[in-house]
Nucleic acid binder design. Structure first.
Lengths: 203, 203
DNA sequence: TCCTATACCGAACATATGTACGGCATATGA
DNA sequence: TCATATGCCGTACATATGTTCGGTATAGGA
């Protein structure tokens, strides 16, 4: 039950129209696309494709071809990607940041409704936690808990640190012995809590 | 030029049909969906929505509504995700692996046509390169170059190591001082070359 | 009060569309 | 040689569909 060449061509035409225009072509549109001079030619192909189970047709409608393997557009998380912003992360503004990451929420195990943003890491203060220079980290705007990795605003710059609580007092610690190990935190501004990381090999 | 409540409802109905069924509803389908008893009701709404610029209509076709802000479905890389397979990675088989990662190729900076697969990392032999236990690595089936990180088949198990060439001889090295530092490589089977990494915080 | 916009109805019409029928040509396997 | 499948054409027809032309009703602003 494999498709012939023509049937494959027609199927991919239908699929492309559906996917990047959101509309199913009519029989005659398929006809002119392939240079046929009769709608019956298309109809016979569609008959066979329906027999082979790749499409279905709902009678009584126009443009009634249904792709059996049509996968609904995946819900993509759109995560704004900021560089390294000393001024802090804009909270709820509609400011369209330069880039956005689009990724499958199931991959980073984040629910759709969480408020997230992404930063590109500068520096090596967290190499002990496996976070390297130029990594992209995805942060959720949330309340940090003990031992979470957080993006914190310190002296007007955002840095990644581990958030620790001892004796009821929160403080930050780098994960790199070369760095000033502790950072006192009077005015501790937590921008976000580390949730995921993406690294690409630089060729 | 903001939409009224009804217009917003109609727009989102059209959008949902287009996105997760791949077909634009007809005027009369919109009519019955909202309980109207005349197609003219829908037509007048569509007229206003067209004036406000959210839709367009291509005359001379059925189901001719075009969403002006329709974004074509992003091309997603589908990367098969294997666990830790001692037997090695099946090459070109159509074996549908249990899970697949779906992600934006621009994010991992991979072209669409590259042969890739993903592995979940076990062990800590590469913590020196910032690759931790339970990370997901994306590997390309390609020829390794000096200092690439590769997935190699050693003694029937797949491990990540750095690929080094000295004096024309390739060998592998872990990035963890606790591990046997060098691994001789007579029969060196390289499964893939490290291209990207995804980590999710485990709560 | 008048004017305008929104929201709906009913009927009618031209055309876009799916489908059926009959026919022709070519390739392939029995 | 016959049967079968694929690929295509022309015509015709019922109906699905977009659109237009009158209407009615309600709410808000000038």
């Amino acid at each position: 039950m494999t498709l012939t060449l023509r049937q494959t061509e027609i199927l991919s035409f239908i699929r492309s129209q559906a996917e990047d225009r959101g509309s199913i072509p009519s029989v005659r549109e398929i006809m002119t696309r392939f240079g046929f001079r009769s709608p019956a030619t298309v109809a016979s192909h569609l008959d066979l494709m329906e027999k082979k189970g790749v499409i279905r047709r709902e009678s009584g409608r126009s443009r009634n071809i249904v792709l059996n393997d049509f996968r609904p557009r995946p819900e993509l998380l759109e995560i704004p990607l900021y560089g390294m912003i000393p001024a802090g992360i804009p909270e709820g503004q509609e400011q369209d940041s330069e880039k956005t990451l689009q990724l499958d929420p199931s991959m980073v195990r984040l629910p759709m409704n969480t408020k997230t943003f992404a930063l590109e890491v500068r520096g090596d203060s967290m190499i002990g936690a496996g976070i390297l220079n130029r990594d992209t980290v995805i942060l959720e705007i949330a309340e940090p808990r003990h031992r979470d990795i957080v993006a914190a605003l310190i002296d007007g710059a955002v840095t990644l640190k581990r958030y620790l609580v001892e004796a009821g007092r929160p403080f930050l610690r780098a994960e790199n012995p070369d760095y000033p190990d502790l950072i006192p935190a009077h005015e501790l501004v937590i921008q976000g809590v580390f949730r995921a990381l993406i690294r690409t090999a630089t060729p």
